[in-house]
Simulated scan of single mutants.
Amino acid sequence: MSDFGDSLGPLGYAELGQALSASSREGFTGELRVSGRPGGTFHLRDGLVVAAESPGAPGATVLLLRSGRLTGEQWAELVREAGGAPWPAAALIAHGHAGAAQLRVICVMALHDAAFAMAAGPVDGWERAAGGEPLAPVAVGEPPTRMMQDVGRKLTALAALPYPVRPDRERPRPAARHHARVTELQQELLGHADGRRTARDLAFRTGRAVYTVTVEMGRMLARGLLECAETPTPVAVRIPPQVRVVSHRRPPPQPPRPPEQTGPPVSLPRRTPGASGITEALTPRKHGASWKGFFRLRNGSAK
């Protein structure tokens, strides 16, 4: 399971696992705030993870609203009825929009998907902080070790695909011509892929788990249903050293030192009386609706 980074690039899986393991051993209660791309926050209670959210994965609210069980107006009314609570679980159940078991499944899905999104990107650092009640907590907390084992299996399955992708890397578009039969999820992704959206963008757009969308995108690229435009070569930029180094953060890369000059110093020609001086200029060179179906589709995994 240690080779998924070879095909997916550097990941934050190891750093994340270490931070969560330390918090679990100490029975930490509060927030573990992870900085990186995309980063996010874990909420722990007595060393167990009860919730997680990340800008790299749809949260419980997005998963619920995209299921089509209720409209945005109905959601706003439930929030008002619950006194402004961001996750009006009791009101959802009372009005028949969802059952208690269904809401628990959504919360667990959101937690695991956020953990996957954070581990699938680089982690720059982390810090602990006191925190309040999370948005959509699970009733029974997840042991961090078991949760990260699940994340590791997902990363391994993703790296084993013929076309490994990352949630924030590839921006595919539908292939010019294809006559293959597609599933409902594949048809949905074909309708939203436009060459500018990543798997993360498509997950938010469709209300699916980012892991599910990322795996399906890799399969569709391998089958020729999707294609990626040629990625331009990035331009190297020299980054100056940072003055401060924050604890639990990797030190910033240092720029290479310029080569030492070994020959005699070069001086400009001195202008003498009566001479015209320098006559040439140096210019830069130019270069040229049932719940059963909803949970089956949104919690898929690579086989």
Rank of each mutant, 00 (worst) to 15 (best):
L190W: 03
A222N: 08
R169M: 09
P164N: 08
L155K: 08
L185E: 13
M217R: 12
G152V: 14
A120T: 01
V151P: 00
V243A: 11
M118A: 10
W126C: 01
A236Q: 15
R146F: 13
P172S: 03
Q242T: 05
L225M: 15
W126G: 00
L190K: 00
R173E: 12
T212G: 03
R205W: 12
R128A: 01
G125T: 00
T212R: 00
R177W: 10
A193D: 02
V243D: 01
T206E: 07
E227P: 05
R169D: 07
P174S: 12
P174T: 11
F204Y: 11
L135F: 11
H192A: 11
G207R: 11
R181F: 09
L226A: 05
I239H: 12
T214C: 10
A129R: 10
A120N: 03
A160D: 08
V140K: 13
V182K: 03
T206S: 05
T156A: 07
D150Y: 14
R173Y: 13
D194P: 14
R238N: 08
V215F: 08
R205Y: 03
R128N: 03
P174E: 03
T214N: 02
R181W: 05
G125L: 05
D124H: 11
E127D: 08
G195W: 01
M118G: 01
P137A: 05
R146H: 03
T156Q: 09
R169K: 14
R219F: 15
V165D: 09
T231R: 15
L155D: 09
V123L: 02
L155F: 03
P234M: 14
R177S: 14
A199T: 07
V210N: 15
A193K: 04
H192E: 09
A180V: 00
C228W: 04
E127C: 04
V237R: 12
R173V: 00
P134A: 01
D124N: 07
A136I: 11
G207Y: 12
R197N: 04
P162G: 09
E227Y: 05
T212Q: 02
A229D: 12
V213F: 07
P134C: 00
V210Y: 08
A209E: 13
P172L: 02
L158F: 07
P143V: 04
T231I: 12
V215K: 06
G121N: 10
T198Y: 10
W126H: 05
V210I: 06
E127G: 04
G224P: 10
R196L: 13
M220W: 03
E227V: 05
A229T: 14
E170I: 10
P134Y: 00
A193H: 02
M148R: 09
A157L: 04
P137S: 10
G218A: 06
H179P: 07
A159F: 09
T233Q: 06
T233K: 02
M147A: 04
E184S: 11
T206I: 15
M147E: 11
A139I: 13
G141D: 02
V182E: 00
E184H: 12
M147G: 02
E216Y: 00
G218Y: 05
E184F: 08
Q242F: 06
V140I: 15
D201F: 02
A130P: 06
D150R: 11
E227C: 08
W126I: 09
